[in-house]
Simulated assay, not measured.
Amino acid sequence: MLRIAITHPEAEARERWCAALSALLPQARVEGWRPGAEPADYAVGWYPESGFFAGQPRLRALFSAGAGVDHLLRHPDLPAALPVVRLEDAGMAEQMVEYCLHEVLRLQRRAPDYERLQREGRWQELRSLRRDELEVGVFGLGVLGAQVARAFAALGYRVRGYSRSPKAVEGVNCFDEGRGLQAFLEGCRVLVLLAPLTPGTRDLFDARRLAWLPEGAWLVNVARGALVVDEALLAALDSGRLAGATLDVFREEPLPASHRFWTHPGVRITPHVSAVTLPEISARQVASKITALERGEPVSGLVLRERGY
């Protein structure tokens, strides 16, 4: 019998993954992993527990239980030849669109300014911005980034996108390494970060690159905290160079209580909830790919370790 191990730190998530995959793959035995368990053929996990890989001599693939895989690739025990497969959308794109749209609509309708006026006890009407006055830049045009960019374009926003290699997304002014990151950033009134964390993107948004954004721009980070240098972002906010930042991801999570992001008036914080994994939907994708692998067929979402995603 095919065996599938679920290695997730949250008990509720483990149970949901087990129930969903068991229903989709009734010929398989799906169980939450525990020390001493029988070796599995496939695993689904966020960050496998210590000792997991040592007892898996026949493991054929590891499926990430989230969109990102940087944490998995840093696992000290991850076998060098083990295929790692990332989730592709699996219900997250719709959530990401909603989150990013909510933040942009707040800016368009001047919500941060009205909140400041309320604190000051001032009654003052401000002009709302038109959609075509807010050019939205999406850094990272993968599955989620492309969906977000298309959604904004369909609503009448001016949208530009950036990816490492050339891409074409309907309604989006696409940039890549050939056209240049600086040219891309210079037109972003709102910058949405949706790229994976790789050696090439870690600390990419430092003081120099944040200065390429237009004065008064707003940053939305829903990718990984380490894409942005915290001190550089705080300095840009302190100086007024950037109007504000919405941060859903951080270098250290939970965000330490002493971090200045908690108290900075220009920062909005959410606890990594912009797009959460929905096991019932994600399981369909994993089950389909396991079925394909069992037939000897190729699957999409296979991580290229040298690229980082």
Rank of each mutant, 00 (worst) to 15 (best):
M1Y: 07
R3F: 06
R3I: 05
A5Q: 04
E10Y: 01
E10L: 05
A11Q: 12
A13C: 07
R14S: 10
R14T: 02
R14P: 05
R16C: 11
W17H: 08
C18F: 00
L21H: 00
P26T: 01
R29K: 12
R34K: 13
G36W: 04
A37R: 05
D41L: 09
S50H: 07
F52V: 12
L62V: 07
F63L: 06
F63E: 06
S64G: 13
A67H: 06
G68V: 13
H71P: 08
L78F: 10
L78Y: 03
A80G: 14
A81Q: 09
P83F: 06
G91V: 06
A93C: 03
C100K: 01
H102E: 14
R106M: 00
R106P: 00
L107E: 10
Q108N: 14
R110L: 10
P112Y: 04
Y114D: 00
E115C: 08
R119S: 04
W123P: 03
L129D: 03
R130E: 15
V136W: 06
V136C: 12
G137A: 07
G140Y: 03
G140K: 04
L141R: 11
L144Y: 09
G145E: 14
A146G: 13
A146H: 06
V148R: 01
R150F: 02
L155Q: 14
R158C: 09
R160G: 02
R160K: 08
G161L: 07
Y162L: 02
V172H: 05
N173I: 05
C174K: 09
C174T: 08
D176P: 06
R179L: 09
Q182C: 01
F184T: 13
L185G: 14
L193Q: 03
L194E: 12
F205Q: 00
L210Q: 00
A223T: 10
G225S: 09
G225Q: 10
L227F: 04
A232M: 10
L237Y: 00
D238V: 08
G240Y: 02
R241A: 07
R241M: 03
L242G: 08
L247C: 04
D248N: 11
D248C: 12
L255Q: 11
A257E: 11
A257C: 01
H259M: 07
W262H: 04
W262T: 05
H264D: 04
H264G: 02
R268Q: 12
R268W: 09
S274A: 15
T277V: 02
S282M: 12
R284A: 12
Q285F: 04
Q285A: 08
Q285H: 07
T291Y: 03
A292V: 01
L293P: 00
L304E: 11
